[in-house]
Design a binder for these strands. Structure first.
Length: 786
DNA sequence: TTCTTCACGCTTTTT
DNA sequence: GCGTGAAGAA
């Protein structure tokens, strides 16, 4: 992105001219307004430093000010600092804020970016060291899955039983831990098709090399390999990077940790900023351990805690802090504020999801009519399926809203198709792109014909495009497929020629029109076709912002988010808790706090205690997003995947400090059937009387339908297909019988009852003395060592 | 080859 | 409840 690359590469004389001695020192007033700890974190520039920055303690400010301070103190040129973030958004924000502090010099922060973009930049300089060319492509998940599917099928393994997705997950988890094919632990090798996973991993890596491609994990893996095997290259980066800054350190995985450690060995000047209580990406390989172990990994490291919160009212903060103390694995911080108490956090029990959406809609309307704005409100859910209800309700009420983090622009099918055409123009080696669009739009080239070409291509070791051309000449393909491939190849040839003297956005239009894609969408009368056409127009527009086709393609591969405009619109934000990190609103709604929804059922089944703690951190993140008001709610009945279920309030609700909470029943929770306890919620709202309101109160159609589906025990019928033998599946907590490996007197954890000590063992039956309930209970399942 | 039908399975998300 | 993906039918 930045053009003025490295000062390091300039002769000293030119460096001096590039930056005259009279360059104004920044006013030191950028340090003003920082508290003692923040200032300490900014000024401790040398050595290893861990900044434990709690929610709302000014983390980004410290990071950017620190960067400015290093430059201002003339400790390094901008190009000698390395700053890594996780998302493009965070990188963009850092750059913008740095620009405000140091002006144009921020342009020279050429090593500020995501782990992946920095890695890709490094890798392009040394690609030959790992057998790639410097113009390698970065493939995304979709291409990755199709590639894996081919490989697994070629190995004659049933792709239904051993899905490419599962294999992709394994490869991902290996790459997250920087595990190369020859280092896969024996135990994990058996997880896929009786140990053939390693073979597939190897073949996959080889295929990538042939395609001159990388997946996202490879960007880091290859860098690590280069550093480890080429001391001179590493030494070069050691002298280059005088200061290293890392954002969101709690989200680093093992590979990223190794990457950082290799680079930090040089000067030892590394500053990591993070918050162990906000680590919510364990499921994609993040290791909280990295932050917990920091002082061991970097001996002599200093740790600074930022505990003064500038965001939330005292009551909101008290709720969040109290909740998170239920977690065992933490470094421990005590957030405090000098803000006023504010309103207590409101906890509401509601009849069902529709009533919940109605109520929140009303709250937002009254917030708005009291002179506040929609954009000051956010609804944060655990899973994206929960968003639908709110969207429907907001549409009905005419509340403007915006869903954050919906389907990504560059992941839409039509955009990916268009991109595939461009990739084929760029390089005839792009087999994945060829497969994607030979028959898109339909040219009568079916699976059978494509397979024919693939077989020959493999034998000749040539790309599909070239092979197809040769087969055409040899008349080896007949019928519809013949003419289809013929026109496809001719078109490609023509477009390639045109690419040389036509502006690339115009070329895109020509391709889409001539290949029949536009016509195909125009003929399609479904409403989606219209939006697809508009998306393609947007793509053409976006291409105009880049100098060349290559520049555009390279950008898209790493920065998969289209910058969305009109941020200034006054809209309520609907987003997932994961999407909310780093953001804040005056008014925050946290609906859906029910057991098995939040904490999510899958998380508990698969990850046990570790996941439960992560879910709790998610709750913590949610509450701490609120500045002024926080509304938590749960329902008695919820439709999940179209099935009605009675649900229990989330355990997290009972973990809130009662003195800071205002608990209310809004819609007859107290009269809920199916033996639901009323949990002390006795108020009755107007919805209870107004069954005609349109939602599903007691005698609404929705409720009747739900009743009809219920079996005699009050639970919905479930169709449970028999488990297929051999189906890969992680061990569920619910399948784990207790007793195995547990001893008398051992401290254990139970998903429902919490911590306790085993007082008696009788086969699989354990008698456990639970700390919380203060009761002895006999339990058979859901127990694990604490 | 393409159209139709049936079964499955389904957090979270970035790069 | 909905979209995907594979097997069978035209």
């Amino acid at each position: 992105m930045s053009h003025s690359d490295d000062f390091d590469n300039l002769p000293i004389s030119q460096r001096a001219m590039a930056r005259p001695p009279s360059a104004p020192m920044l006013d030191a007033n950028y340090l003003e307004g920082l508290n003692t700890e923040q200032r300490d974190a900014v000024e401790t520039t040398d050595g290893a430093l861990l900044v434990l920055a709690g929610a709302g303690t000014g983390k980004t400010r410290v990071l950017t000010t620190r960067l400015a301070h290093i430059l201002n103190q003339r400790k390094a040129w901008a190009s000698q600092t390395l700053t890594v973030t996780f998302t493009n958004k965070a990188a963009r924000e850092m750059r913008e804020r740095a620009e405000k502090l140091i002006g144009d010099e921020a342009q020279s922060l050429s090593w500020l970016g995501t782990f992946h973009s920095v890695s890709s930049k490094i890798l392009r300089r040394h690609a030959e060291l790992v057998g790639l060319e410097s113009n390698f492509t970065v493939i995304d998940t979709d291409d990755q899955l199709r590639l894996l599917k081919q490989i697994i099928e070629a190995e004659n393994i049933d792709t239904k039983r051993w899905t490419p997705r599962f294999m992709a997950g394994l490869i991902d988890s290996w790459k997250n831990r920087a595990v190369t094919p020859d280092r896969v632990p024996a135990g994990e090798a058996h997880e896929f098709a009786n140990g053939r996973g390693i073979e597939i991993y190897k073949t996959y890596q080889n295929r990538l090399k042939v395609l001159n491609a990388c997946d996202f994990g490879d960007l880091l893996m290859h860098c690590i390999a280069i550093f480890q095997n080429n001391p001179s290259v590493l030494a070069d980066y050691h002298s280059r990077f005088k200061y290293i800054l890392v954002d969101e350190y709690q989200d680093t995985n093992v590979a990223q940790y190794l990457w950082l450690r290799l680079l930090a060995q040089g000067t030892g000047n590394i500053c990591c900023v993070g918050d162990d209580d906000q680590s919510i990406y364990g499921w994609r390989g993040a290791e909280v351990d990295n932050i917990l172990r920091f002082e061991k990994d970097f001996p002599g490291a200093k740790v600074i805690r930022l505990e003064r919160n500038y965001r939330s009212t005292a009551k909101i903060l008290a709720c969040a802090s109290h909740l998170i103390t239920s977690n065992q694995d933490r470094l421990g911080k005590t957030l405090h504020t000098e803000d006023e108490d504010g309103e207590p956090v409101k906890v509401r029990g509601i009849w069902d999801g529709e009533a919940e959406a109605r109520l929140i809609g009303e709250d937002i309307e009254s917030w708005r009519s009291s002179g506040r704005t929609y954009s000051e409100c956010a609804v944060m859910v655990r899973a994206s399926w929960q968003m639908r209800l709110f969207e429907e309700r907001f549409i009905m009420l005419g509340i403007p809203y915006k869903v954050i983090g919906g389907p990504r622009f560059f992941e839409r099918a039509e955009i990916r198709d268009a991109m595939a055409y461009l990739r084929l123009i760029r390089s005839e080696n792009d087999d994945l792109a060829f497969e994607r669009v030979v028959n898109q739009p339909k040219r009568g080239v079916g699976a059978a014909s494509i397979q024919k070409v693939q077989i020959v291509a493999r034998e000749m070791e040539r790309p599909l495009t070239v092979t197809a051309e040769i087969m055409m000449r040899g008349n080896e393909i007949r019928g519809k497929a013949q003419s289809g491939i013929r026109t496809f190849l001719n078109d490609l040839e023509r477009w390639r020629a045109q690419a040389r003297d036509i502006e690339h956005p115009r070329l895109m239009e020509i391709i889409l029109d001539e290949c029949g894609y536009t016509d195909m969408l125009k003929a399609d009368k479904t409403p989606q076709a219209q939006t697809r056409l508009e998306n393609l127009k947007e793509l053409v527009r976006a291409m105009g912002e880049f100098d060349s086709l290559n520049a555009f393609l390279e950008h898209v591969e790493l920065v998969m988010d289209a910058s969305q405009g009109n941020e200034s619109d006054d809209q309520v934000q609907i987003l997932t808790l994961h999407g909310a990190k780093g953001l804040e609103w005056p008014l925050v709604f946290l609906p859906g706090w029910e057991e098995e929804v939040f904490p999510s059922k899958r998380a508990l089944e698969e990850g046990g205690l570790k996941s439960l703690e992560e879910e709790r951190r998610l709750a913590y993140v949610g509450i701490t997003r609120a500045r002024e008001r926080c509304y938590i709610s749960f329902v008695a009945n919820r439709q999940i995947f179209g099935r009605w279920q009675s649900v229990m309030p989330s355990r997290f609700i009972d973990e809130l400090p009662p003195q800071h909470v205002d608990a209310v029943s809004e819609t007859g929770y107290s009269t809920a059937p199916d033996g639901m306890s009323n949990s002390g919620f006795n108020n009755v709202s107007r919805f209870d009387e107004e069954a005609s309101f349109g939602g599903s109160t007691y005698d609404s159609p929705g409720w009747k339908r739900a009743q009809a589906r219920r079996t005699s025990d009050g639970w919905p019928q479930k169709k449970r297909p028999p488990d297929i033998e051999g189906t890969p599946r992680k061990e569920k907590m619910s399948d784990k019988e207790s007793g195995a490996g547990l001893e008398l007197g051992q401290r254990v954890f139970h998903i429902k009852f919490g911590y306790g000590k085993i007082t008696q063992i009788d086969g699989t039956k354990l008698t456990v003395d639970f700390e919380k309930a203060g009761v002895k209970k006999v339990v058979e399942k859901f127990v694990e060592a604490a």
